[in-house]
Design a protein around this nucleic acid. Structure first.
Lengths: 228, 228
DNA sequence: ACATTTCCGTCACATCGTTGTCATACACTG
DNA sequence: CAGTGTATGACAACGATGTGACGGAAATGT
């Protein structure tokens, strides 16, 4: 759903090719020609995926992947490495560096999109367009709609994202801090208790259909969504 | 999870490497460049593991390990020693100093993580996110749920931690003092008798499914959980 | 540009669960 | 049976969460 892909690639032709394909598929693309460039962009806001060329002028792709994985703020961003055929033998080392997946040049647009989608699904399913459903409650990111047994439910933007995150990570306890991080996003300075209020609003919206009982309070830990 | 690793290493490059890898794996890292540094940190709160370089300016790693093992408060913290290849012959002496394991430089991140996990599992399995099950009673830290043969059991925060500790250390008698230390935590001032009350509450919660018989009283010693 | 509506974050207060302690009843040991 | 250790129920204080209200920001409509 309009996810942001940061493409770090020094070869203009390839960068263009990749970017065009991604944009055509509905992604927003940030282009960087080097790790240094990329770093400047990441400082302002976080992309949802990083496509990282292996060979880069200056800081290498591998080194940059390590740096991203090292910093708390960027740790969970999925990384896909672009490598030339000849570099394939280095895969093992690269994986240790923290890449989530590999793409060997040349690659087809279809393959590119598939990898991105798969990597998103694995590490950040809430950034995906797939509809989710739990016991009659259905959320569809594509249409931005929520239905409870067919009847539509109106949600504010934050409640929508909150519910989406819950539904893509059910059965697991999330602390208020984690929720702020992953639902409100990066660089937020908000009281933890604010989460409570939005939980309240979400529950209120789900009350009509009785789905509010899916949102459970786990005292002293956080909140959890029932998985079934 | 979210265990704290105290890294004591004077070589900045290695400290950085280790710290980054650990953080990537989800640990919280405290960095110290010397035993003296480390000691200051330990005074405030206790880490779950100590990674200790063999060669340190000032107090040596070996000496510091001995000190940690000597003090009641820090005695049970697992210690992993970092040694250079050339020092390998000293392994025996090191083990006598009380280290739980060794890592010979250079080492791979994978090996580092494996050792830490193994050492944690051995000395503090309750710091792990793995679900535990004993004769139909199942506790899952990730979802913060307890089931007795499928039926969910509600526990307060303290009872939950208590049960978790018991289940990860079955068949072993724990004194009230030990339980206070490891379930309530360091630096607590609570009557020992309070443990009795929580045992009572835990048993009460487990009564419905008959699992309360798993929690045994060992007169004049403490409590124990049956292992099967 | 202005008016209106929606949404957000925060606060104050109400409510409820949890906690540590005590007093008492009970069980075990020698 | 005396003495020690443990179980249990009650309780008051505390802490965490629920809830309604409010001012202002942001989006939307006119």
């Amino acid at each position: 759903m309009n996810s942001i892909v940061l493409v770090v690639e020094d070869e203009p032709a390839i960068q263009e090719l990749v970017a065009v394909n991604l944009e055509h598929a509905g992604y927003r693309v940030w282009r960087a020609a080097s790790a240094e460039d990329a770093d400047g962009m990441v400082r302002d806001a976080l992309p949802d995926v990083v496509l990282l060329d292996w060979m880069l002028p200056g800081i290498s792709g591998l080194a940059y992947a390590r740096r991203l994985r090292g910093a708390e703020r960027t740790r969970r961003i999925p990384i896909i490495m672009l490598t030339a055929r000849a570099e394939e033998r280095d895969k093992v080392e690269g994986l240790e560096g923290g890449a989530d997946d590999y793409l060997t040049k040349p690659f087809s647009p279809k393959e590119l999109l598939a990898r991105i989608k798969s990597v998103l699904r694995r590490r950040a399913p809430e950034r995906t367009d797939d509809a989710v459903e739990i016991s009659g409650l259905r959320l569809d990111p594509e249409t931005r709609r929520v239905n409870a047994n067919g009847r539509e439910i109106a949600l504010g933007p934050t409640e929508f994202r909150l519910l989406h995150f819950f539904m893509t990570h059910p059965e697991r306890v999330h602390s208020r801090a984690q929720l702020l991080d992953r639902v409100w996003g990066d660089h937020v300075f908000v009281e933890e208790r604010t989460v409570d209020v939005h939980i309240r609003r979400l529950r209120q919206a789900l009350e009509a259909s009785g789905h509010d009982r899916l949102v459970e309070t786990v005292r002293s830990s956080g909140y959890r969504m029932r998985g079934a």
